[in-house]
Nucleic acid binder design. Structure first.
Length: 532
DNA sequence: GAGTTTGAAACT
DNA sequence: CAGTTTCAAACTC
């Protein structure tokens, strides 16, 4: 009838001609091909596991069946071929189903859905076995009729290709995405209810989930992984990273505090259709307020995450991009100044000593100027007219870096920092001195930031103690001071510090916000700026 | 282990 | 296509 039944051949007939060419076989191949190979290749150590039973895909059977089917035979033969699912492709774990009402002939049944016979399952009234092959076939047919992709792997291999190394989170690299996408509403896509999460892939534009936290850069997700897998070392490293990114903080560069980001990002990057963007945005919104963290966490499922520790750097929101820029400017200025004074000294010395050498110096100096000028198309970031007169290579390097970080420009060739190759006699000493100054300055700045972080930390603990002690010893006289460790000079400053900190409950480490930002501006880095 | 929650699949 | 129901896994207690 209607042509080869490319898509939906009349069942009965099909059943009989299945092994024929048409789509059936194609489907099978697809199914087996993908899942099998993928799975096989990805399958972790467990691959060793007795390749037993399961393995076979086969939503359909005739020809294949004999080959692939190992039969249910051994009811217990395979004690949960577990494969912790976190392998990047289709879940690929041969689990034992517990179906009761579906006869294991619907996609509800994992075995059936994965194209395998039930084997050693705990199902009731199971028809997903050789004995009931006819019924099974029929079921397969109708399932395919409903959804031709029903038996195809749900996870498409790395569509984003590039992502690879970016997101490792101490976990298996995430590849691919769910073909259909999930539709989660309450799980935040961080529980196994979520098919994406279960398959260990990030949610994608295919998803229509709400309040999704299964995206690249999601703090919740990372925290989850850390907690789950005890990645001691990695965890530390990533904590550090978190601290760093957190410090650079909300505004300027991506990573803002709001998780729901990824999707939006994806949209931008994929220049996505309005469509998807609305989706994403919708999600973002639907997922409770933007700064939702506190809210969503509490509001969330009672379970609210087994230990959903969301790490937030104490420096979060403190350092703004403009601060970084300012710092760079400062350093450049320092370098310039140092170079100026130092070279002057040097010139004086040299003129006194020998004319000959000075002549040579000048020659090279000119050369340098030439090259530096060349290099520094960059050169006037400060625009204060001081022109990089004699900017050292290091300074130039700094400037290049500055541009790099601030403008995300690949300075590649511009930054061809020639080490210390042909430097005139004393020149390298000047550079060395210059470098020293710059680094010192930079170190100072970092120290201040660090101490500010410590200060904040002590504030937090103080406020915590305050709350507690306030509850206990209400009208007592200043109990505080005894803060253990950091108390020293810090505690004092701490008191002058943001009242907000003392008022905010411990949980609110997540809400530094505006006020704290302003603090920063007058705290470490800034005073620095003023100095200069 | 029982009960609840969740989201996919199936159905209308 | 949207809304509802069914189902089994995931999760909680």
């Amino acid at each position: 009838m209607g042509g080869e039944g490319n898509e939906f051949p009349p069942k009965k007939d099909v059943l009989e001609e299945i092994d024929a060419p048409t789509m059936k076989s194609a489907r099978q191949l697809d199914f087996t091909g993908v899942s099998a190979s993928d799975v096989e290749s990805i399958k972790p150590p467990t691959a060793t596991r007795p390749v037993t039973t399961v393995v076979t895909p086969i939503p359909i059977p005739p020809s294949l069946s004999h080959a692939s089917i190992r039969k249910p035979e051994s009811p217990k033969s395979k004690p949960r071929p577990v494969v912790e699912a976190r392998d990047g492709t289709t879940p690929q774990k041969k689990k034992q189903c517990n179906c009761k009402h579906s006869r294991c002939l619907k996609l509800y049944c994992e075995c059936f859905a994965s194209g395998t016979y039930c084997d050693g399952c705990n199902c009731v009234n199971c028809f997903n076995n050789v004995e009931n092959e006819p019924a099974r076939r029929e079921a397969v047919e109708s399932t395919l009729e409903r959804n031709p992709n029903a038996f195809r792997p749900k996870i498409a291999s790395s569509p984003h290709g590039a992502r690879d190394n970016r997101e490792e989170v101490g976990e298996v690299v995430m590849l691919g995405k769910h073909n259909k996408g999930c539709h989660c509403k309450k799980s935040g896509c961080l529980k196994k209810y979520c098919e994406c999460f279960q398959a260990n892939v990030l949610c994608s534009e295919n998803c229509r989930c709400m309040d999704c936290k299964n995206f690249e850069g999601s703090e919740e997700r990372q925290a989850l992984f850390h907690n789950e897998h005890h990645y001691h070392n990695v965890a530390h490293l990533q904590h550090a990273n978190a601290a760093i990114t957190g410090a650079i903080g909300s505004s300027g560069f991506a990573s803002a505090p709001a998780p729901k980001r990824k999707k939006a990002q994806e949209i931008f990057f994929t220049q996505a259709t309005k469509d998807s963007s609305t989706h994403r945005l919708g999600q973002a919104n639907s997922g409770r307020t933007t700064s939702s963290k506190p809210v969503s966490q509490r509001g969330g499922n009672a379970s609210s995450g087994p230990a959903k520790v969301v790490y937030r750097s104490l420096l979060a929101d403190i350092i703004q991009p403009q601060d970084v820029k300012a710092l760079c400017s400062v350093l450049v200025a320092v370098a310039e100044e140092a170079a100026k004074t130092l070279t002057e000294h040097r010139l004086e010395d040299q003129t006194e000593t020998s004319l000959a050498s000075s002549a040579q110096d000048q020659g090279q100096d000119n050369d340098n100027k030439g090259t530096e000028a060349d290099k520094s198309g960059v050169e006037e970031p400060n625009s204060d007219g001081s022109k990089g007169r004699d900017l050292s290579p290091d300074t130039l390097a700094l400037m290049c870096d500055e541009q790099d970080t601030m403008l995300m420009v690949t300075a590649s060739h511009n930054c061809s920092v020639q080490p210390n190759s042909q430097l005139p006699n004393g020149q390298d000493q000047v550079y060395a001195e210059q470098e020293k100054l710059v680094l010192t300055k930079f170190r100072d700045c970092l120290n201040r930031i660090i101490s500010y972080g410590e200060l904040r930390e002590s504030n937090c603990s103080l406020s915590r103690m305050d709350l507690e002690s306030a509850a206990h010893t209400a009208a007592k006289t200043e109990p505080v001071v005894q803060q253990g460790p950091v108390a020293n000079g810090v505690s004092q400053t701490a008191k002058q510090q943001p009242s907000q900190l003392t008022t905010t409950p411990p949980t609110t480490t997540t809400t530094p916000n505006t006020s704290s930002q302003t603090h920063l501006h007058k705290t470490p880095a800034l005073s620095e700026k003023k100095d200069i």
